[in-house]
Design a protein around this nucleic acid. Structure first.
Lengths: 211, 211
DNA sequence: GGGAACACTAAACGGGAATCACTCAGCCGT
DNA sequence: ACGGCTGAGTGATTCCCGTTTAGTGTTCCC
């Protein structure tokens, strides 16, 4: 985050002991706990204990609990954005790109359920909107990257109905619905997730895009 | 508000709520607060204040906070189940029934966002699984009612691909995804919700069902 | 009249996030 | 060499949460 003014000639001040390590240590510990126990499970005290420091110390490095979790989530969403960017440059049919992106998206969600829930299932109750703004912006950039091939499809006149934006929103939200239910209701007797993802993609793409 | 003039000698206690009157009062107050402020906002103390009673009093009538919210949610989901049952008996094409049910489902979600979030977006973190079991069972019954016409469609050989169960799960989760995003991210710049719902339904049904 | 059952209460507990007042160590310019 | 500044760290405290405990007043029944 904000790197405060450092003296040009020399490091402002040699960090004492493991001073500048702390922030990273906290993030690492917090991520481990967050992944294992979710938002509510990752308490300030637990994180502080894991680092071996008083709970107050966390406030030296972060404004509040949410900032810690948001920073972790941002990292994860950036990985998702990278994936999309990478797929975007693949020299294949735009429909194939759309499918690849959505597959990557759903796989990401199932691999990072807690982060996914925090960012996309709106810990809405739990987190004030301004704090989540950063991550939300990243999420939007993901959506924009995903929108590009959808617009390509529309430009080729292959959109069966609706505007390109609507189509993108529907494709995205449909896949979101599937993985969010798989994540939040794991105990329900679901069909095979891979098969469900395939049916969702086949269905939506066949329904929205002409061959 | 309730001006309880405490007479010096008499008790400051709120008069008895004639047995089960009180229970209803609590549910009504809790529902109002829950609808307005969501799960986290509906605290025991706030509900108790609204009723004009000490927070402890709520434990006379309910095991814990979750039971209160669950009872409220159950009522709402029962209304949804009623809707489905009603639609199920309509003498129309099974595809039309599926569409009607999903439309009713999404409308219900948008009309009862907090309940919907609690039940279907898994306050997973917040609520222990055993307490939510009742409502979850009701939700399952809704899904089963919805599955019937999908099976009808399959029985007529009109399912393009996938098993009937998979198709039902995909249809449901696709619609869930749309409304859950509309609910949890209201600030995002969405296209017209009605139009999105139409595109979702058209897309999924056209993609999964043959004419 | 005397219990017993009930509806209710105040006070407290433990655990969350966050703040306050403070200490302490190291680096600075003089 | 030294006093001052600053950033890292702490324990105590505040406030709110859900929930528990022990006790109080009312009513009903025998």
């Amino acid at each position: 985050m904000t790197v405060v003014l450092k003296k040009p000639q020399k490091s402002a001040r040699k960090p004492k002991g493991d001073g500048h390590m702390r922030r990273g240590e906290i993030l690492a510990a917090a991520e481990k706990i967050f992944i294992a126990e979710g938002y509510a499970g990752a308490t300030i005290r637990k994180i502080a204990d894991a680092v071996g420091v008083s709970s107050t110390a966390l406030y030296m490095h972060f404004r509040d609990k949410d900032q810690i979790l948001m920073e972790i989530s941002s990292g994860a969403i950036e990985r998702l954005l990278d994936l999309n960017t990478q797929i975007a440059s693949r020299p294949v049919d735009p429909v194939a790109r759309v499918r690849l992106m959505l597959e990557a998206y759903m796989k990401f969600a199932l691999d990072n359920p807690n982060t996914y829930q925090l960012v996309f299932c709106g810990g809405g109750d739990q987190i004030s909107p301004d704090k989540i703004a950063d991550v939300l912006a990243l999420g939007d950039r993901c959506f924009e990257k995903f929108s590009e091939p959808v617009h390509d499809i529309a430009a080729r006149g292959r959109l069966r109905s609706g505007s390109p934006v609507e189509a993108a929103e529907v494709l995205w939200s449909g896949c979101h619905g599937l993985v969010s239910l798989l994540i939040t209701k794991p105990s329900r007797g679901w069909s095979n997730p891979d098969q469900l993802m395939k049916v969702m993609l086949d269905g939506l793409l066949h329904g929205l895009v002409t061959d």
